[in-house]
């Protein structure tokens, strides 16, 4: 009988135990598929190992981090990542907000417009990149053809073998893939703003721009704050768009930290060094997320 009492999870004092028991499988699973590999990666980053082997461990060393901080390649990857995060985030926010504001109005074909807006988000990333690889093909691509036909360029543009063009090809593809997420989030935010606010502002003689600046934007800030963080993290960790489109080239001008991690690990078999890049990428992502979430929260009325 005392045992039965101990396991009576219906008792109010034991309800928290039931919660823990129900959560345990999920926590264990997350621990196994996320925390364990993360711990392995951190451990590997302190070993000089080309190809790791489960169950074996090299000597502790800081050599990977020393090499990393002295490497111009790492700092260039940081710079490329920062540039890409800035350009793609601003581009996605601008296009995403514009389209959300557009489809928030009442007009004929609004449902179709909303569907079209969300379509890039539904297309699998690799398929989207293959389509863009055709568009940006240097010899027969649509984009170069448009540039030649409209007189913007005399020759076909080598989109993926010219450093500047390659960066913009990657950024444009990422904006196309990323803006629908912003649109959907902003649209949801717009629909939660009461119409009374706008009506009152109209009575007071506020222009459309003033209504946007003083009603829409502040009330959207909680949504925008979270969206911004998620977009930044997506650009930070995105791999497939760059890998398929440019493989980080030419001359590493599109090599972000995630591409560098992959290339060092699987291309050059420097798993210890690659793990060090991965660990630093994680640290940067966490710091950026904390900073951005803080900023987003403060911006609310």
């Amino acid at each position: 009988m005392p045992n039965a009492k101990m396991f009576d999870l219906a008792r109010p004092s034991r309800q928290h135990l039931l919660g823990y028991i129900l959560l345990a499988p999920a926590v264990l699973l997350v621990g196994f598929i996320i925390v364990y590999p993360l711990a392995i990666a951190i451990d590997l980053s302190f070993q000089q190992v080309r190809i790791p082997r489960m169950g074996t461990r090299g000597a502790f060393t800081l050599a990977n981090y020393q090499r990393l901080f002295a490497s111009s390649e790492f700092w260039m990857a940081c710079w490329v990542t920062l540039k890409l995060v800035t350009v793609v985030t601003i581009g996605s926010l601008f296009v995403g907000m514009s389209t959300a504001l557009l489809v928030n109005n009442r007009f004929r074909g609004r449902t179709l417009a909303r569907l079209g807006m969300a379509l890039p988000w539904a297309v699998p990333e690799v398929i989207a990149v293959v389509i863009f690889a055709w568009i940006f093909d240097s010899s027969f691509g649509l984009m170069s053809w448009l540039f030649v036909v409209t007189g913007l360029s005399d020759t076909m543009i080598p989109w993926t073998s010219s450093p500047a063009a390659a960066f913009w090809a990657v950024a444009l593809t990422m904006v196309w893939k990323g803006f629908p997420f912003v649109s959907i989030m902003v649209l949801a935010g717009l629909q939660s703003i009461p119409a009374d606010f706008y009506n009152a502002a109209k009575v007071d003689g506020a222009s459309a721009l003033q209504r946007f600046r003083w009603i829409t934007l502040p009330l959207l800030m909680p949504v925008l704050g979270v969206t911004l963080v998620l977009v930044i993290l997506w650009v930070f960790r995105d791999f497939s768009i760059i890998k398929v489109l440019t493989e980080g080239g030419p001359l590493k001008t599109t090599q972000t930290l995630s591409i560098m991690t992959y290339d060092q690990a699987f291309g050059l078999h420097n798993f210890g060094y690659a793990s060090a890049v991965g660990v630093l990428t994680l640290v940067i992502s966490v710091v950026a997320s904390i900073f951005m979430l803080g900023r987003g929260t403060k911006a609310i009325y």
């Binding site: 093909d137 240097s138 010899s139 027969f140 080598p158 989109w159 993926t160 073998s161």
Partner: peptide, 10 residues
């Protein structure tokens, strides 16, 4: 390559 005798980036 520079004389464009081959298609590039394919």
């Amino acid at each position: 390559i520079s004389e464009g005798l081959t298609p590039v980036d394919m």
